[in-house]
Structure formats: C-alpha cells, structure tokens
Amino acid sequence: MNIFRLLGDVSHLLAIIILLLKIWKTRSCAGISGKSQLLFALTYTTRYLDLVTNFVSVYNTFMKVVFLAASYATIWLIYMKFRATYDQNHDTFRIEFLLLPVTILSLVANHEFTLIEILWTWSIYLEAVAILPQLFMVSKTGEAESITSHYLFALGSYRGLYILNWIYRYYMESYYDLIAIFAGILQTVLYCDFFYLYITKVLRGQRLQLPA
C-alpha cells in the first residue's frame, strides 16, 4: 500500500458515496446512467469472485464488500426505488457495443486461460469503458448537475491515481500488470475531456454545460 493507491481507493469510495447520497437525498436519479451502474455492478461481481477463494487482507475484503454492496444498492435505487425518476430516454448508449469487444479481448489477451482469470480480465476491460453510457448521457443532455460532476471527477481520479501507484510499484516492488495498466490508462484517457470541463467550469462555480 502506497499513498497513490490509498488516495485512489479513497477517491473511488468517495465517488460511490457521493452517488448514493445524491440519489438518496434528492429522491431522484435524474441524469444518472443506469446502464453505467449496471456495468460497474458486473465489473465488481466478476472481479471480486476471489473474495471467496483467497484472503488478501482485512482492508481488501472490507473494500470489496463495500464496493459490491454500494453498487447493488445504487442499482436498486435506480431501477426499483426511484425508477420513476430514471431518465431512460437519455440513457440510450448501446452497451452491446462495449460488451462484445470486451468479451473478445478478454478471451484473447489474458494472463491465463482459466475461468476466474478470464472473468478478472473481463472486469478490468469492462471497467475501463463502463463510464461511457454516463458520459454519453451527459453529452446528449448537454449538461450535468454539480453533484454528478463531483461524482464523475472522483471516479475518474481513482484510476488516474492507480496509474501513479503502478509507476511507484514498478520501481519500488518491480511489480507490474500490463492488462491493468493498459486498461487503466484507457479508462483515465476517456475522462480527459470531462476533467477539462470540470476544472474550467465546475470548479469556477459554473454549471457543467457543453458547448452546443
């Protein structure tokens, strides 16, 4: 555990909590892509299967359980409890365009051709692109609430901080995982445009509105 990894995890946790609180407090999931949340739930489910096969640390187990629970709670809020507020007409990203390439890539580019390893690889590739339905929704409606922007910023920062963690681990522990690094860089790159808007608009007190 190094400072980048810890900050990354804190940022990830913060993002999930911000989203849950936003939906709960406003009693609405307007502006939130249910599809992205479904993809994140799939990501955590397939990645954390090792929760039952091997123990890493109390921290590791605790965080995995929290991410899984929070993810399913979010799905429940969007698709059950506050379903009437779910903006389905704007959540039109075709996720099969993500699932198909991710599945093919995980079958071709993995560390080992075993079920658990392929599912782990699948989750890594899927996470990299899981935010696309949400970003598509923001671009479609042309705006995002401040709180949604904070959520996206925290969620985007998390993998960026993980990249610093991987650089650190490469030099300090000679550890690296090319699959995670490749997907992590792609994931962070996808947020770049949003980061720019967040810094130039939201942090200056303006609404996140895209140029027409």
Partner: peptide, 10 residues
Amino acid sequence: LCGVMYKDEL
C-alpha cells in the same frame, strides 16, 4: 513480476 499472481488491488 508480471502475470497471474494473487491480486491485492481493487
């Protein structure tokens, strides 16, 4: 180190 190893990251 690279490849399959026990994964300590989230």
